[in-house]
């Protein structure tokens, strides 16, 4: 007789009801905020949140200014500056969500308690990303304001396509959250190098998504990677909504209209979201079966 008992995924249990979703998300967001911010006083936390992103932006500004001799009105400058500013969301949201697994499993050693609590785990992880999203939003805002005030980044508030901006931003954040969930799933299954996984993914996307240089600069054989990434279209839409003139200066995506870009972004977001959900639940299922939920690697 075959005594092996196969466990299978119960699809219904994967979708939370509204009350569970709201409760889990709210509490996870609050918890995430406490973890992110209460290690110091608000003043030092504000400095921490501002200095890091501004320094990252300043590296690019100095690199640009010593070569171009301060010609900040050239379209390449807002391309680089805004791409870099909005890219902060990638590190914040995507890495923030997957980092919750590392924090809870390795540092606080509470992941097993989260799994026995009456919460919906993916919602909990998404909620944990809210704090990093908030801090990233502050950093993006300050970086852009700094660029407008001191570096001639010309954003005409009356000419900004606000509708396109907010819709793109919203879809982009959802897409990043889904990618974060995918990473969180993978993190559940690995013991080694979990600390690097978020940084390496964010670093690779920084290189391939044309965040700080047009995709045409990449060698031809690497460009398709950028075209497959939704972040490439997301950043282009954000740039177009804020400074439309940038789009005409670079041929990479100029053949696409805003509607077409939005369609591509939406399509890729849906594909990545489905992919993320499948990967997360599969990894979670494997982690449960292998008894890895309460693993402490001390790696």
């Amino acid at each position: 007789m075959n005594t092996t008992k196969r466990t299978s995924l119960n699809i219904q249990s994967l979708i939370p009801n509204r009350a569970t979703f709201t409760r889990t998300f709210r509490v996870a967001a609050w918890l995430g905020w406490q973890i992110e911010s209460n290690w110091t006083d608000p003043f030092l936390f504000a400095i921490y949140s501002i200095v890091k992103p501004l320094s990252g932006a300043a590296i690019l500004v100095v690199m640009y200014s010593i070569i171009i001799n301060g010609a900040f009105k050239s379209p390449i400058f807002p391309y680089i500056y805004l791409g870099n500013a909005f890219y902060m969301y990638v590190g914040g949201v995507m890495t923030g969500i997957s980092w919750a697994i590392i924090d809870d499993r390795e540092h606080y050693k509470t992941l097993k308690y989260m799994y026995v609590a009456p919460i919906h785990m993916p919602t909990y992880l998404l909620g944990r990303g809210v704090a990093r999203f908030t801090v990233s939003s502050l950093s993006v805002l300050i970086t852009i304001l700094f660029g407008v005030a001191f570096l001639h980044v010309q954003i005409d508030l009356a000419a900004v396509n606000w509708g396109l901006f907010f819709v793109s931003l919203f879809i982009g954040v959802i897409m990043l959250a889904m990618m974060g969930l995918m990473l969180a799933g993978v993190t559940l299954l690995i013991a080694q190098h979990v600390w690097f996984i978020g940084d390496i993914t964010a670093g690779a996307l920084y290189l391939f998504s044309g965040a700080i240089f047009p995709l045409d600069v990449l060698p031809k054989y690497l460009r398709p990677v950028g075209y497959f990434m939704p972040i490439t279209y997301w950043l282009e839409l954000l740039r177009r909504s804020l400074v439309g003139s940038v789009a005409q200066a670079f041929p990479t995506l100029s053949r696409f209209s805003n509607t077409e870009l939005m369609g591509i972004l939406l399509g890729l977001t849906v594909v990545f979201a489905i992919f993320a959900a499948v990967i997360f639940f599969w990894c979670e299922h494997r982690a449960r079966e292998r008894g890895m939920i309460d693993m402490v690697t001390n790696y």
Binding site: Y64, D199, I200, G203, F213
Partner: peptide
């Protein structure tokens, strides 16, 4: 004993280096 560390420690800086190299190339440095 853990050679994979070496791979990650080289890959991570190489990604940043490559991105900054392409920025310089984009502005014809």
């Amino acid at each position: 004993r853990e050679k994979s560390w070496m791979f990650f420690d080289i890959l991570l800086p190489m990604l940043a280096v490559s991105a900054y190299v392409f920025v310089y190339r984009a502005i014809d440095a």
